[in-house]
Design a binder for these strands. Sequence first.
RNA 1: GGGCGUGUAGCUCAGCGGAAGAGCACUCGGUUUACACCCGAGCGGUCGCAGGUUCGAACCCUGUCGCGCCCA
Length: 875
Amino acid sequence: MTELDTATQRPDLPAAWTPAEVEAELYQRWVDRRYFEADVKSDKPPFTIVLPPPNVTGSLHMGHAMNHSVMDALSRRRRMQGYEVLWLPGMDHAGIATQNAVERDLAKQGLSRQDLGREKFVERVWEWKEEYGGKILDQMKRLGDGIDWSRERFTMDEGLSRAVQTIFKKMYDDGLIYQAERIINWCPRCQTALSDIEVDHSEDEGELVSIRYGDGDASIVVATTRAETMLGDTAVAVHPDDERYQHLIGTEVELPLTGRRIPIVADAHVDPKFGTGAVKVTPAHDPNDFEIGQRHGLPNLTIMDGRATITANGPFLGLDRFEARPAIVAALRAEGRIVAEKRPYVHSVGHCSRCNTVVEPRLSLQWWVKVETIAEAASAAVRDGRTKIHPAELNKRYFDWTDNLHDWCISRQLWWGHRIPVYYGPNGEVVCVGPDDEVPTGEGWRQDEDVLDTWFSSGLWPFSTLGWPDSTEDLKKFYPTSVLSTGYDILFFWVVRMMMFGLYAMDEVQPFDHVFLHGLIRDQYGKKMSKSKGNGIDPLDWMERYGADATRFTLLRGTNPGSDMAVAEEWAAGSRNFTTKLWNATRFALANGATVARALPAREELTAADRWILDELDALVSTVDSNFEAFQFSRACEALYSFTWDEFCDWYLEIAKVQIADGRAEATQAVLGHVLDVLLRLLHPAIPFITETLWTSLTGGESLVVADWPKASGAERDVDALAEIEGLKKLATEIRRFRSEQGLKPGQKVAGKVRGACCVGLTDQVPSVRAMTRLTEPGEEFTVSATLEVGLPKGAVKVELDLSGTIDVAAERKRLAKDLAAAQKELEGTTKKLGNEAFLAKAPAEVKAKIEERKAVAESEIARINERLAALPEA
RNA sequence: GGGCGUGUAGCUCAGCGGAAGAGCACUCGGUUUACACCCGAGCGGUCGCAGGUUCGAACCCUGUCGCGCCCA
């Protein structure tokens, strides 16, 4: 240890890596040094990621942890490559979710939002946000996110509110935002309209009731799962070609319980094969019926209010929809009008995605975004490659959406959100107000009561956060953003909206160049993680016990475009083991003088092992780099893992021990230092904390965060060195196998001779092989009691051992028999192939040569093994 | 009903035309001068099934069964 190069090395690494104790400190140091703050004045090329803003009510779950690991790895690599990296953080005000959370709080005090009134309630939400909101931001720091905290935004902050108002006004003026009375999804609990994507469908048990309208020849039977809506029927519809009902089309029937007479209309959209082929038409309470009503000029009769209480005059007035349903069925039954009842009847029912209440289709006046043109633009940007989706297989789903998008209902009957900037005057005036316009005041003027869908403001995120509508330096430098990373489950919720708004607001410049869509996290049996199943794993728990690095590595290791990943405790433990391995290996190398202070010796001065590990490293750089470029994080991590553990630790470090002891210390220490230097750089985007600690210790450098990303040399690999090390591996493994099967303890030293290494070019590797297999120099009294032969491409190496006694003949026979069987199988396969004339005629020459070589090797192996078997004494 | 994807070792997955792989689990042996969060050795698969294309198929095609997701 006297050779330590104290100039660069700081041998102060503790014996064990204790992530939970040191990661926070490392993170703070990065933040203090302002590494993550983007410089808008920089000449470097920009690399921008906007963080998908988590809900202000949210906390970090595995899905976030995965997505953040991806974004952090991407941006750390780009930073090392010399880009000016901006990763911009922020949060979403999450309209319904946040309002519900605060309302729940109020309810505990026996209060409702109406008790407070609008202004006070909104104040209360802001207070709530200050106190409880944004927990997730601290959790992101824990994970190591290299994010620019100086640019944090909130969808309701002043600048973003200005962006919302600006685009609303622009779209209103362009005729892309309008008001219309239509059937919308209504949540009777949240008391608001919902867009299609805020409705979750599930297969629920309900009832299917068939009701006879009218009597005798003029009667017609309709079936419904929502009998209570019959109070609002204004027609019965049949298919125009339906033979059964030709005589009824154009006539009227009496609607039971009401005495109203309603027409029977013919409409091509009725499916004659479903049920009786006749449907009741309730235009005010069903989207399809609404359209039928429009086509036939039927009246829209509303029979329920916003709380889903019956408002139709009569015996059911004031009943809740679920009370009214059985009551109405009972009343119909009493009149003998129920023809059939199926119960339970399983059918698809929509639920509010926020509170799970059954959604009620409701006719109401709402604000809409006309999507046709902007959806076309969103589609075009992907079709012409301005934005690339990874994996490309999801393009089709994207197009399915952009090509079939319905107009988007953007008004919500909530208090928490961006209020619609439209004012109504006393004489029927309607004025849309931009951010710099004067708000009309005076007698009789009032603002629209509704707020905008949360996705309206988050759809502006890629440019509103950079200062739009102002033409800011940030916007010029960092738009369009480079990558949007998110789960494929919100491709449509959010990505499509950002595309539409971004292209519209930014003169057809796409909001992002690449969209990376990762999969969902599942449990170890491939089941979706969910609260109800109780199979969720808290990433904070992993970070506490295994470290942020191990958590990140686990998630990145399973992340490929579009594919889900299963995780379990064992995976995280395995990643922790990996970090421990890296820690111990680096400490060991440092203790043996690994250094970057000396230049790498010229290639011809290096051993085959040195050249081999440097070639492997070079290949690793290429592999990691290209996989990062293609968002193939799993492959990049696998390559890093197997290089670190299987090649560097298991083989090169063992060889290095021998080289250092044999007087090649200087060169070996330089190689060790170089390999670790490059390896730690490559690992840094995935596991920033431990690599930072090890690398600064190894190199004395300032920080890996701002270190250079390695480049592959592109040099051809040294095939001779590779062959030598492969020979070394085979030789060592075969000797170990022999020892193991002979029952020798792993640590037991055995005198032995290695013969014939020179003939196969392995002379230089013999000392390492001897050390790895615990062979000692033969002494005076060396007697060969066991011999094994290791078949190598260029010939066999013979190893003679003095086991101080007889060998286990049975075990040896078994070992040889196994090898023989394998060789025979190989001979059989290759012989058959080479006997096939079609193969000989059509297969390429290099394939044939390969098979011929394999056959030759198999033949010599068989001969060799048979000889050995014959030479063994009888059992 | 339409679309997409997927079935490979006990589990989770990689490989996607020329010798069946990894991690975990399992078995055996280990106080090896980095590491038991470790080391060494080993066990384990007719690559869902049936046809076809090909000199050659886990890989391409067709059909079939199972599972998952998205949209109706």
